[in-house]
Design a protein around this nucleic acid. Structure first.
Lengths: 202, 202
DNA sequence: AACGGGAATGAATGTCCGTTCATTTTCAGG
DNA sequence: CCTGAAAATGAACGGACATTCATTCCCGTT
């Protein structure tokens, strides 16, 4: 069976990817609801109808972007965390990586942070497993750290993972939206880690 | 001049308020873009056209909600922060208040957190002074604390205020979207304060 | 070179909804 | 009670846009 790669889909994986990338750029630039399918098609250099050969509808396109990018983030995170076994170093690595990724893929970051959050449809009804999987990387690190006595045991990991993610994500969001950057991501990562590890009190 | 209250507007302030409240409920339930002006009108028990006597257009309605609620938050925050002069207590008060307000006005919180964030139009082009004003309450507290030696001086307030806001807001967001609550807001406030003040390391 | 079928196209369709505005209702002052 | 102006109404308009589908293109096979 001399079938092309990814033969379970009839179409080329290239075009699928091309449309996803176009959609990321377009949605990041104009917002999901203010972008038309025709905009995405034009950016992808493809006919309007072609989009529907690869995606069920406009919503499906957004969800696909989300899954695509979360896979990317999870994959990069898991790779980066292999290098160290110290929970504190791991957490530092995670924070730093998240910020770096946002910097590396600003359009992607914007879609994730702003566009996806928007619609009740997605946040409330879409199961969102991939996001939880990403968050669980953090709670895993916290759990390890508590077990090994590096982190305080009285902290609730369920709350803590959110606090950490929220802090990092807000920094990332500001970075994404800020035109003139007032600080580098590396600085920000240091500040955030310092604060999370040692607190703000003298 | 025996004019009614708020005579510079011809219409009743009541109806203005009624429409805002209806819009908050509708937008929170369905999302801004998935809600129609007719939905808001029905909820407010008013004709479609009446909305346009009080608001320029649909976008203006969303912005009005934002300003209305930020005013509310700022006002409540400033009142609550009068009671204490210790920066640490003030910060604890702020965090606790923000979480309480989210609990008290869940629809409002949802519109602010989810709907407003969404549109590039609002986040990028709308000046958003009220939000910065709210954030500056935090940086004010931080500045005081650093001056009086309670907080570490090497922390950048610009980053720090975002970190704190992001942490608190993410907790609030999870609370808003979570159906089964796994923790109370009071617990969350304690955890967040503990973490921010003392850090997570043993 | 003719065939066939999957992929791609993009014009056409139908719906939806923000906004308008001609008309009606309300009500204060005379 | 009139009267007139402000306020409210909601049917109708018009433009936008997601989605469809009849047609064309592409290319491997014979």
């Amino acid at each position: 069976m001399g079938l092309p790669l990814l033969a379970n889909k009839k179409q080329s994986a290239d075009k699928h990817q091309k449309i996803i990338e176009a959609a990321i750029a377009v949605f990041a630039g104009n917002g999901f609801f203010n972008s038309t399918v025709a905009d995405v098609a034009r950016e992808a250099d493809v006919a309007d109808g072609t989009i529907y050969l690869y995606f069920k509808n406009k919503d499906d396109l957004l969800i696909s972007i989300f899954e695509y990018s979360m896979d990317l983030f999870i994959q990069e995170a898991e790779a980066a965390l292999k290098s160290s076994s110290d929970p504190k170093e791991k957490l530092r690595e995670f924070i730093s990586l998240h910020l770096k990724l946002v910097q590396k893929y600003p359009d992607l970051a914007q879609v994730i942070q702003i566009e996806l959050r928007q619609s009740t449809k997605f946040m409330k009804e879409y199961p969102n497993e991939k996001f939880f999987q990403y968050l669980d990387i953090v709670s895993g690190i916290i759990g390890d750290g508590q077990e090994s006595g590096v982190f305080k045991k009285n902290l609730d990991p369920v709350i803590l993972k959110r606090v950490i993610f929220g802090a990092v994500d807000e920094i990332a969001l500001e970075w994404t939206l800020m035109k003139r950057k007032r600080y580098t991501m590396a600085e920000a990562a240091d500040q955030v880690c310092g604060m999370i590890f040692e607190g703000i009190c003298q």
